[in-house]
């Protein structure tokens, strides 16, 4: 789902990767703790706030883990996990199923966004009331030809608007009042508002395509052979995200130093926007980051209908939760 992240920020990524982005947990190197790495599929932003909160507040250390958080950028991070380059990585649920069908032994262990933040932003002046309006009116939609767009194109086969690739940044959106643009509702609309534009957002999830997003994955082999580490990781992330959702300010300050592209007010606004996407009625019954087989099954069926997957494999194999982890 990181497909929205255009390559325009590659330079920033390189800087982050070469320098501050490689900051490690102070416990890395301590023989009494287990050192693992977590590769992010973008730069430090609120969507990863809980991971940094877990590091800064000592939640990883409390579980005996030293987690090296590596901001990276777009691309299929699941390949890094499958090839053993990193222990954990963030990706989206549809990428997990795609990876598994390709033979990559990756398993989801934690889902930050229960409701996908993937959306479409339009100019409020157009008077659209719901996402269907984007696909029933002329104009232009900037988006990448990825899973969710295939879903919407299938749902609206006679859409009259012109479809174009997603250009970097928000300049085209600001310049063209008839242009709609893919976004993460936690990111681009906030930039557009700062630029005095009038963005209105619609979640793709409202149209019926809602993969878990910012999903932490691990190698299946690790889940089977070292469930204790997986358990500790889940508990630490849960604590980290709890802390971040409750009070993101301190962690935002830390991430702000790692990602000077985003200012403090945008960090705060983004953390506020994403809160209801992370903490839902479902997670209040269970816990932050929990997933259900029904959601995975639905996603698998949708990807088969879109001819992205050949078969919908059993959902239970794609993810684990604390109660389903091997007892060992």
């Amino acid at each position: 789902m990181r497909a929205r992240r255009v390559v325009g920020r590659i330079g920033l990524l390189l800087v982050l990767q070469a320098g501050v982005g490689c900051k490690q947990d102070p416990a890395v190197g301590d023989p009494s703790v287990k050192a693992v790495s977590l590769t992010l599929d973008w730069v430090p932003e609120p969507e990863f706030g809980g991971f940094y909160a877990a590091r800064e507040a000592g939640a990883f250390r409390a579980q005996g883990l030293a987690v090296d958080i590596k901001p990276r950028g777009q691309g299929e991070t699941w390949k890094l996990v499958a090839q053993g380059v990193t222990d954990f990585a963030t990706t989206a649920a549809d990428q997990v199923l795609i990876a598994r069908e390709q033979g990559a032994d990756v398993v989801a262990i934690f889902a930050v966004y229960q409701t996908s933040p993937q959306g479409i932003m339009v100019h409020q002046a157009r008077g659209f009331a719901r996402i269907d309006d984007v696909f029933t009116h002329p104009g232009t939609l900037e988006a990448e030809d990825v899973t969710w767009l295939k879903f919407l194109r299938r749902k609206f086969p006679d859409a009259p608007m012109k479809l174009t690739s997603n250009s970097p940044g928000i300049a085209t959106f600001l310049a063209n009042p008839e242009l709609s643009k893919q976004c993460f509702v936690t990111s681009e609309p906030l930039q557009a508002r700062t630029a005095s534009s009038d963005p209105q957002t619609f979640l793709i999830a409202d149209a019926g395509y809602n993969p878990y997003t910012t999903v932490v994955i691990a190698r299946g082999e690790m889940v089977r052979k070292d469930p204790a580490t997986i358990r500790k990781m889940i508990l630490a992330m849960r604590a980290g995200w709890r802390a971040y959702v409750d009070d993101p300010a301190a962690t935002n300050a830390v991430m702000g130093k790692l990602n000077p592209e985003m200012d403090a007010s945008t960090f705060a606004a983004s953390a506020g926007v994403q809160k209801p996407l992370i903490e839902t009625a479902e997670t209040q019954r269970t816990a932050l980051g929990e997933m259900t087989a029904a959601r995975w099954q639905t996603l698998g069926q949708q990807l088969v209908e879109l001819a992205i997957l050949k078969v919908a494999a059993p959902a239970e194999a794609a993810f684990v939760s604390l109660d389903r982890l091997p007892a060992k």
């Binding site: 497909a3 795609i98 990448e144 030809d145 990825v146 899973t147 690739s165 992205i308």
Partner: peptide, 12 residues
């Protein structure tokens, strides 16, 4: 082809 490459890459 550029659009095909990006879409196909994303979809595995």
């Amino acid at each position: 082809l550029g659009v095909v490459i990006v879409g196909a890459s994303h979809n595995g």
